[in-house]
Design a protein around this nucleic acid. Structure first.
Length: 233
DNA sequence: CGGGTTTGACCAGCGC
DNA sequence: GCGCTGGTCAAACCCG
């Protein structure tokens, strides 16, 4: 679903990024629960590479997922508007009114690369700028996974235990962004939670990093979940 | 008292 | 160089 030029331009990149969306009948709270599991197809950068991301999803989830074309880099602050309020969101919402997500798998943890998307909406990221990766507090950028969920509660139960370490009001938004860290020792996974400015009913959750442990509760599901979560995180 | 949250300060990157 | 911004820190605070 990536544009051909994107694939050709970035054959050398080991990292991968794609969208996968959730059907209209799947909506909301506890999206990543431990009730059952489903496997989400994931389009990789290399044309012949088909990644599989695995998440735990409620039974009501319709597994017939639509892969959406990726057209932006959510890590760029400049792209936030296109993601959350621009024409792409509109198109996504038409087909998937409740939830969408983007995922990333970075198989080379020591290589920090960003990507340039090829599309018609002037949302591309300069490949030169992509090389200007900051090496401030976080030397290695961890894999990220982001999704949007319609929910009244900000923090969805994903089976892990989180400690809030910060909150920030982001520019041009009415709702603060919250920062969480996994409470498990030696686990450096973080997540950000914020509400969509254009639609406060929507919660944007961004996970960063890979858990080095199983979810902290739901023992009966932990065996299956841990195996699957290992694939994702 | 221990663990989690709040919140102002601080820091580094980026754009101008 | 400076100001803006996002991300993080850490002391104070809260709560069971």
């Amino acid at each position: 679903m990536f544009s051909q030029s994107l694939l050709e331009d970035h054959q050398d990149m080991s990292s991968q990024l794609g969208f996968f969306s959730f059907p209209p009948n799947y909506n909301n709270v506890g999206m990543i629960s431990t009730t059952t599991t489903a496997t989400l197809p994931f389009i990789g950068y290399n044309q012949n590479t088909l990644k599989t991301l695995t998440m735990n999803i409620p039974p009501s989830f319709d597994h017939s997922l639509n892969i959406q074309e990726s057209t932006h880099d959510p890590r760029r602050k400049e792209d936030l508007s296109p993601i959350f309020g621009g024409p792409h969101l509109h198109s996504l919402q038409k087909s998937t009114p409740n939830t969408w997500a983007w995922g990333e798998v970075n198989e080379s943890s020591n290589i920090i690369k960003r990507r340039e998307f090829d599309h018609d909406h002037n949302l591309g990221v300069s490949s030169i700028k992509m090389k200007k990766i900051k090496s401030s507090r976080r030397k290695v950028r961890e894999p990220r996974f982001c999704f949007k969920t319609m929910s009244d509660v900000d923090v969805l139960d994903d089976g892990y235990k989180w400690r809030k370490y910060g909150q920030k009001v982001v520019k041009n938004t009415q709702h603060p962004r919250s920062y969480y860290r996994c409470t498990q020792d030696n686990c450096r996974v973080k997540k950000r939670v914020e509400r969509l400015a254009e639609d406060p009913r929507m919660v944007i959750t961004t996970y960063e990093g890979r858990h080095v442990h199983s979810p902290s509760h739901d023992e009966e599901d932990s065996q299956a979940s841990s195996q699957l979560n290992n694939l994702l995180w």
